[in-house]
Design a protein around this nucleic acid. Structure first.
Lengths: 217, 217
DNA sequence: ATTATCTATAGATCTATAGATAATGC
DNA sequence: ATTATCTATAGATCTATAGATAATGC
């Protein structure tokens, strides 16, 4: 048995590196297929074709389609979470954390189209994903409620609405790239802050705060 | 060729009535399967089993699974639209029309669980459905923008957020029936009105207006 | 006699695996 | 020599249709 490489570490020898490349090709193909809206629907043959590897190699890495798609989702969600965490360090106000997170997420449409495509392909199920952004976002909203900053009564319903808005924006950008700009993203953040219960003026101010320079990517 | 019966009219003879029953059994089964979250994924065999009809009868009524599911969606969307229209007659203010529509839709969780189940099963794709509620809701939001009542800049993104909120509420009710009440629905409507740009006090007032008695159903 | 439904099945996928081939380790 | 990849294929679905059966019309 070859040594299990740490997350992100480059495997020690060439054989393991080749193996890692094949696996990554499968994961990337899965992400593309999800982005095209035919996630679970694609056959394993289509997946291995898209990954440009032999059909049988699939089973060297995953036991089933479900397992591959779960792995692929987890990987993209991790990247997304890291982007947001990078941009939110040293923010205290839950409303600011929330707004920055949403504005960064909307900007994925330009900064990381493959993540944006995955998000629109995955749809609202993202809100239910136990690992990923949903728990993080829920915590932000609940912190805002506890601080008396958000008056909306149910955090889960509010999160679902915010996620719906983000999905709407990302999908609109895919279909009509010209109709969505960074300022549309900020408008969405502003509207969501009002939904959460902030006064209009305060929502506008927070949705316009300067964003940190694009993070580690 | 037997006479094509008008929409909703009872067919003239017993043969046509039997045929209509079989077809309806298929449509109802499709709606149930969508509600269970395995719409297109179910095999035709599963569909005919759920409808309790012979396998081959499927092809007497539909050419493909896609066609059945499209028909089933169209039918439920029609019922939904009729409920809303019934409740919104003689309302002029776009904000009121919007709020009543949303409050009626949320109350489907109790009044018409099969419609609510279909909505949660279908997900955000509903916003893109060309026939159905989306165009109707979009018109309401645009009317509100034109009247200067809604300040949110992009109607489509706002609609997607509202739809996300509704889906979140309906799903929450499915998983934890106790945690959602009619007043949760009104809270959601209030939050959505704020998102659209109404002042907090005005949003509250409109979300609390009396609803008409349950309509024709 | 006509029409819809049902049962059975051919043909087309799709999944999972076995065995052959190619690449790397030592 | 070892390990991953690739090709080929058996077995399990799934779809679409043909032909038999049951229900209704006239």
């Amino acid at each position: 048995m070859s040594a299990v490489s740490e997350q992100g570490a480059v495997p020690a020898n060439r054989l393991d590196r080749r193996k890692a490349r094949t696996r990554q090709a499968l994961v990337d193909a899965a992400v593309r297929l999800i982005a095209e809206g035919r996630g679970q629907q694609a056959s394993i043959q289509e997946i291995t074709d898209a990954a440009d590897i032999g059909f049988g190699s699939f089973y060297n890495h995953f036991e089933s389609k479900e397992q591959l798609f779960q792995t692929a989702s987890g990987e993209v969600l991790d990247r997304w979470a890291k982007m947001i965490d990078g941009a939110c360090t040293d923010r205290r106000d839950p409303a600011e954390v929330f707004a920055v997170s949403l504005r960064i997420s909307g900007r994925l449409a330009w900064a990381h189209p493959e993540i944006a495509g995955f998000i629109t392909g995955a749809g609202l199920e993202l809100v239910d994903a136990p690992s990923g952004l949903a728990p993080h976002a829920l915590r932000d909203i609940r912190a805002g409620q506890a601080a008396g900053r958000f008056t909306v009564p149910d955090a889960e319903i509010a999160l679902s609405a915010v996620a719906g808005g983000l999905l709407g924006l990302l999908r609109l950008h895919q279909r009509h790239p010209g109709r969505v700009t960074e300022s549309s993203v900020d408008d969405l953040a502003e509207a969501c802050l009002r939904l959460l219960g902030l006064r209009a003026a305060e929502a506008r101010r927070i949705a316009q705060l300067p964003l940190p320079r694009a993070g580690s990517s």
